[in-house]
Design a protein around this nucleic acid. Structure first.
Length: 125
RNA sequence: CCAGCCGGCCGGGCGGCCGCGCGGACAACUGCCGAAAGGCGGUUCGCGAGGAAAGUCCGGGCUCCACGGAAGAACGGUGCCGGAUAACAUCCGGCGGGGGAGACCCCAGGGAAAGUGCAACAGAAAGGAUACCGCCACUUUGGUGGCAAGGGUGAAAUGGUGGGGUAAGAGCCCACCGCACGGCCGGCAACGGACGUGGCACGGUAAACCCCACCGGGAGCAAGACCGAAUAGGGGCGGCAUGCGGGGUAACCCGCGGGGCAUAUUCCGGCCCGCCGUCCGGGUAGGUUGCAGGAGGCGGAUGGCAACAUCCGCCCAAGAUGAAUGGCCGCCACGUUCCUGCCUUUUGGCAGGGGCCAUACAGAACCCGGCUUACAGGCCGGCUGGCAAU
């Protein structure tokens, strides 16, 4: 597991799971809004992506989602904590941003004390 | 060579590394769970967006609902003729009208003697009549009579052009054109043609109501079918429990209590009452299916002007569901731009080198046939006009 962390990040696809994460911590950012929810177990972290219709047509929304997935695959997975669910709400600024900026942004958000705190406090009820 | 018209096609290519979805294989390598069957991985192989996948505007397949058949009413749609098609508002071939020098392009193109309505403003007059300016004759100079050629108004003005004629004019007369009617000829038809007759009536508008002909039951893959937790609730069975007192064999009844509901609150009055196990049925979350072999694609032959049809051969080509087809790099093509050299009267062309961009519109969502809209750049074919050369 330590040498291959990327494959351990799961996806969340159910509406109920997204709604659950929505009740957790929220970190606003330049490129995206990061929502963090704690499941209360020790399983691998999971991530979900939300891109609203407002951000563009289908092609642009797909591109936003794919770039976010790539960012999570490359660097984001290292900084995610087991037992947490993350939802990244993408904005159209992602289309023009470089991957260096996106990686740095996501890493700094994930290392934020509030994000780390979510993993320790199991009282999410 | 330049300008233009029409039709068809492409819409980056090759390679490397990493990653995603679906399917196959596991003979070989390998991790976990399981008694096993097997499951979750790993490995490996194959496949993986469009010409519009888009808008959701028409037409179908498919599914469910409704319905005895048929016809009609209402409502909606279509509207020259013939053909193609499963069907269409689509396509093909014609006809008619309009535009263009031409190749060609455009048309919501049935009916106005079934009826109703409308036409502002302007104008003398807008659908049965009329005369402002004007023209002519007469005149007592006030007018009276005749006329509609010309002017003027309007989206539209009562057939048009030319000639004759007349006081001036007028289909009053004549020729041609138009129109109406009649039979004839050609064509399946829309329609066309020549001929004869008639001096010409019957104005426009049906993307106004309307009339006529034809077509249409409704909703949609979130259709529909199947499996089906947890929790709450319903029913069956079993077990336990079921305040106190009185009556009764018992079901139960009466009194005093407890909790909850409705009522702003209180009292009176009203209504309701437990736990555990197990099974059954409905049903929610969730899952499976529908769901990729079809009016399928490609090639050929035959028939047809064509749309298309028939036959033969080959092929199987995405299947996601908070929704896979992506990220990075190299080379090349294409494009654009700069510099140098050469050619050319110029626009420009060729060669070499460098920089930039490395792409437009846009993402399958049950499936087909169309329509419409968006689109960087490029290729091919046919045709028209002009210039030059032969």
């Amino acid at each position: 597991m330590p040498d291959n962390p990327k494959s351990d990040v799961g996806r969340i696809t159910k509406r109920s799971e997204f709604l659950a994460v929505q009740r957790g911590d929220r970190l606003r950012g330049r490129f995206f809004l990061l929502e963090i929810g704690n499941r209360g177990d020790d399983a691998a972290p999971r991530v979900g992506f939300t891109v609203t219709r407002k951000q563009g047509n289908a092609v642009e929304r797909n591109r936003i989602r794919r770039r976010l997935r790539e960012v999570v695959r490359n660097t984001g997975a290292r900084d995610m904590c087991a037992g947490n669910d993350y939802v990244i709400v993408g904005r159209r600024e992602i289309l023009a941003a470089s991957f260096e900026d996106l990686n740095a942004e996501l890493s700094s958000r994930l290392r934020n004390p509030r994000a780390a705190k979510g993993a320790n406090s199991h009282k999410a009820v």
